[in-house]
Structure formats: C-alpha cells, structure tokens
Design a protein around this nucleic acid. Sequence first.
DNA 1: CTCCCTTTTTTACGTGCGTAAACTTTACAG
DNA 2: CTGTAAAGTTTACGCACGTAAAAAAGGGAG
Lengths: 345, 345
Amino acid sequence: MKKPKVNTMEELAEAIGVSRPTLSRYFQSPELVRRTTSLKIQRGLAKVEYVPNFFATRLNRKSTGIIGVIIPYLNDLFFSNLLECIEIAAMEAGYSVISKCSHSDPTIEAGAAESFMSMNVDGVLVAPLGNQSDADVHQRLQSRIPFVLVDSRPATMPDVDFVGTNHVQSTGLITEYLCRVGGPPVFLAMPRVNFNALEREKAYIAKMNELGHKPTVIGVQPVENHWHFEAHGEAVLSAHLARGQLGNESILCANDRVAIGALRAAARHGLSPGRGREGGLRIAGHDDNPLCPFTVPALTTVAQNFEAIAKASISRLVAIIRTQVAGGAAQVQLFDGELKIRESA
Amino acid sequence: MKKPKVNTMEELAEAIGVSRPTLSRYFQSPELVRRTTSLKIQRGLAKVEYVPNFFATRLNRKSTGIIGVIIPYLNDLFFSNLLECIEIAAMEAGYSVISKCSHSDPTIEAGAAESFMSMNVDGVLVAPLGNQSDADVHQRLQSRIPFVLVDSRPATMPDVDFVGTNHVQSTGLITEYLCRVGGPPVFLAMPRVNFNALEREKAYIAKMNELGHKPTVIGVQPVENHWHFEAHGEAVLSAHLARGQLGNESILCANDRVAIGALRAAARHGLSPGRGREGGLRIAGHDDNPLCPFTVPALTTVAQNFEAIAKASISRLVAIIRTQVAGGAAQVQLFDGELKIRESA
DNA sequence: CTCCCTTTTTTACGTGCGTAAACTTTACAG
DNA sequence: CTGTAAAGTTTACGCACGTAAAAAAGGGAG
C-alpha cells in the first residue's frame, strides 16, 4: 500500500521515463503535452508519492499566484464571513490565499505585511486596524505590490483602492426607517476600533439633521479601543436607562454586537424592545450578524453585502495585478446596505 | 524619504561593504558576528529597503519554522477563538503559522494538507471535519510530518496524538448539575458535523444512566451535515414544544449555538427559561460561546478550555518536532470543562 | 614584532524547479 | 517514401539564499 516517495522532479522524470522539462510543462497545465505522454505521466504519478516543492516552485516565477489577506480580528463573525467570501473569490480567480490575522496588534499587522512582501505575493488585501494601524506599513505595501483596502479606510490614505460599505447610505437607511416608523433614534456608539465607527456616527448625524431631528450620541469612548462590543452596549444602555430614561426611545447601535449587549440591558430593565408597541423601546443594529435572527427579540438591522465586497475587492486586485497599473487612479467601490426588518425595531 | 530598494542579499552585501555569508550569519542571529560588524550592518540596513526572500530562505533549510493549521470552519466563534490561541502559542514557541480553513469541504482540507506537505512545514495541527474528512489524507500527513489532531478525533485514527476536551467529564458535569438542581434533562442533539457531536450525546446517555434517569435525545439528524446550528435548535425545540410538551423540561443542548436557537424557540412559545422557577423550562449549552453572557436569559453552559487545548497541542507538536519521534506512542490529552452557571438553567 | 586565535572573505556547491534554445524524434499528409 | 510541423529531449542557466571549506585579515598577548 505504501508508495515509494519521490522527492524531486528529476527523480520523478527518471522514474516515469520522460524528461524533466516535459514534466514541468505537464504540471503547469496537462494540456501542454501530448495526450499519450499526459496519460503516461498520470499513470506514473499514481504509482509514486510526489508533491512538488512549494518554495522551489515560487522561487523563480514571475508570478507566485498568491494573494495575501490581512484581517484585524477573527473573533467576529463579520470578519470571518468576509474572509470566507474572500478566500472563495480568490480561489475562483485562480489564486491561492494566505491569510494572517493582526489580532488587533499593529506590530503583528506590520509583520504580516513584511512577510507578504518577502513572499512576493501577487497582491495584498488589507482590512486595516483603526488609527492604530501603522500608516508607513500601508504606504510601503502600496508602493511595492498591488494593494487594496477592504472594509475600513484610514483617512490618511485617500489615494488607495478601497472596497467597502457605503455607510452614509446604510446608516442613513436604518436611521430613516427608525424615524419613519417611530421616534427619532439615539445613536449608541461603538469603541473606535476602526474608521467605520466614526463614519456611521457621522452618517447618523447627517441623516438626522437632514430629517430635521436633533441627533444624540451616547456611549462614545474616545480612549479605550477594545473589542468587547456586547459588554460595551450593555453597560452604556444600562447606565442610560438607570439615569431615568423611561425606555421609550429608539436606539440605533453602531453594530449588531453592541445591539446584542443593548438587548440584554433592556431585558434586565424589564423592557422588551420591539416595533409593535407605540412609543416603546426599539433597538436596531448594523451588519446583520448571523445571530440576529435568533436574538430575543430578533434584531432589526442593516446588512452589509460582504459577499459583493469580497468579490469586488478580489476582482479589483486581480485587475491591478493583470494590468500592472500600480500607480493608476485609485478606485473606490462602496456597496449599499440592505434593511433587515425583524422584531426589535 | 524613499529608501533605495535592494532585492538580493548579494546587492545588500555590496552596499554595506561586508560579504554575503557574513550577512547570512547576521540574519540567522546577530550574535554570530562581531559587535562592530553587527552595528555596521544595522546602520546599513537602516539606509536601504530590503526584505529577504521568503521562499529562497526556506528552500535550502532543514527546518522551515512553519506550523500548518487546518480549521474546519471559521464562522464559529469557538474555532476562531481556538485558532487565535493556537497562533499566539505557536508564535511564542518561535514558529510562524500558516492557517487554512477547510470551509467544511474535504477536498479543500485535502488540498490544504497537500499544500503544507509541499511546503515542508515542520508540523501540522488539524481540527478535522467529521466523517467527511478523508482518512487517507490524515494517514499521509501522519506518515510524513509531525502531526497532531485537535478538538475532534476520528474513531478511525486511534494512534494519533490528540488534544481536546474531555466530553465525558464536561457533558457529565452539566448533566449532573441539571439533574441536581431540577428535572433530568432531555438532550437536544446537533448535526453530526464532527465526532464531538456523538461523543457528547453518548456522555449524556452514560451520565443519565449512572444517575438512574432515562435518557432522551431529540433532534438527531443523521443525514444532514450543516452548520446552521441555531436554526436547527430553534426548529427542533419549536416542534417539540408544539407537540404538546408543556415546557417544563430541562433541555441540554449539544452546543451553545443550538442552545441559542432553543432559547429563541422558547421565547416564541412565550416561555422564559431559567433555574428560578421550580419545574419550569431550563436550557443549557456547551462551549461557553462569547455571546452566552449576553443572551436573554444568559446561557448556562460548560466552558471548553480552548486556551489550554491550544497551548498543549502546540507544545506537543513542538516536542514531536524537536525529538523527531514521529513513530512514538500517541499521546492523548483531554482537558476538563468548567461549569458556567448563568440564568437559563 | 611575532605568534596564535578569532573573525571575515573567497570560493564553490547545493536547494528544486522555471525557462529558453538547440536538437531529435514522432505524427501525419501528400 | 518524404517533407514538415508538432512534440519531446538535452543542455544550460537562473532564482536567492544556506552552508561548508579554504584563504586572508584582524586583534591581542607575549
């Protein structure tokens, strides 16, 4: 049952009885050799155990066929979903992806970038940390390899390709919905871990002003940069309710995880959010976390189209790779959010 | 501001004014060259932009310093947490990790394994899919590289190093708790995506028999292998309650995500699970998903010690790598679960 | 200044495969 | 059977670095 192990293409060529360059061509694409030799090679491969050396393969190629992906944080279903879609899109585009997680540490992010550069990856997709991200790292990446930002865009890098959600639209959409169906919402901010936090906040304020309402933001934490969104949401709303607010407001949370914490706070105060009761407490989120349909009550939110974002970012990256327009005009693609009306608002 | 780009060590050696082998030694460890030359090299490095080629570096080395990690599914906070801990543990052990996600597809899992073998990784950590996993792939991995299984262990591979949770203990623990504090629980099974599903089920049955109660399992789906645990939990419990069960049972769910679905079903039937009411509905989970403290009611569960699992698996893998005992006696390490009593049971 | 040891340089080869050019074989039509 | 194009082989070089051995340079003690 144990097949003899063959370590190099040279040995393999000898074992099968073809020349090494022919083998090389076969591995690049079996159609490049004659049908009969192709079969001969296939039969030979079935008889031995051989895997071409990854490093040797990439060492002397113009293109490595690798796309590097840097994600800030994995313990968040939004990012794991996004990453999954990105990997699948890249696979379909014929690239293999190597993904690294920053663990919300700029040093690790920089290391990942360094590592990708040293691998001569064909391109890099980065979902950046917030202000913590080292701007120099992004600069270097951009000047060396095809480079696209996803999800969140540092204000310091205006001329970079970017694919993300149109937060003005998405946040505006749910703000407008909340105003239309009930009282104008208060905005429960999230820790400023990235630039989307601020973008949503600003979008909320703009839409409120547009509709002639007075915007109110609670839960701003300029200093702390943590990812304990649920605890943040619960603490802020709990304090808010304890301060004597009667719980007949609409609360728009900066994201679903904050909203889940808020739902919890409401429940602890004996309140049951929902759009049914006129004037009652309502809570809405943002992102359409997979758990939203299962919270009690099910969370009304606005979905980010991360599938489209993933596909678009990969296809943009591939376009840059193909045409080598490293210095071309930066392209910004923003996708609309979609309202998911459930029970909580 | 722009530093001149240096592509090869040779160019770098010339630019700095030392020989290439000296540089090579410096990069392996700066202590290997004289203090003065070390400083000279450092000053030189500061003046140019140079990153050593990753592939060339690994091509001709006995050890690549890479650990490959294969995870079955990323859109689950348990696995993303586990992966995070594994990455950090490996980092601390001086290895860089490359992680691949199977996306619950045996073909992708096999491809990832292939890829790791072609990279001559020093070792591989695999959290396998269930019965879907290709046993041959694991066999090949084991016969070629240091190899450790994590989280779930195929019954077909008894003589492999394994690190995971002691489900007999953990499930027994919560079963015993539920029996002690209220009525003996019904077990709400999860889709059989891996072997843990069955292990927990068996552990529940064993503990119930031990305590002299009649075990009851609902929600078994032998065919479907999906990861929509919440929907599964909601559907099963909803049907169960609709069948006229009065909702005064204890429900032990196979994992927290199933339990979150069950909580939802309970809420829709007007029931509010909790240990407070004598004889009322109680719902418990397994895993201690990060969201458990924030569900309504907060979910009572039993935590897996994934931090310990991650550390132990990496340290076991490193031990195998160091001693080259590929054929040594397989070691199984099981970690106990810890009861997390909250509100739901 | 000389001897001896340490550090560095020179030189050379190896890693596994891509790739190009020149040459030889094979296939098929005429 | 012959000519020609396609397919295959041989040969040779390159990729960027690891590594070993020999030769040269440096540094301190006597």
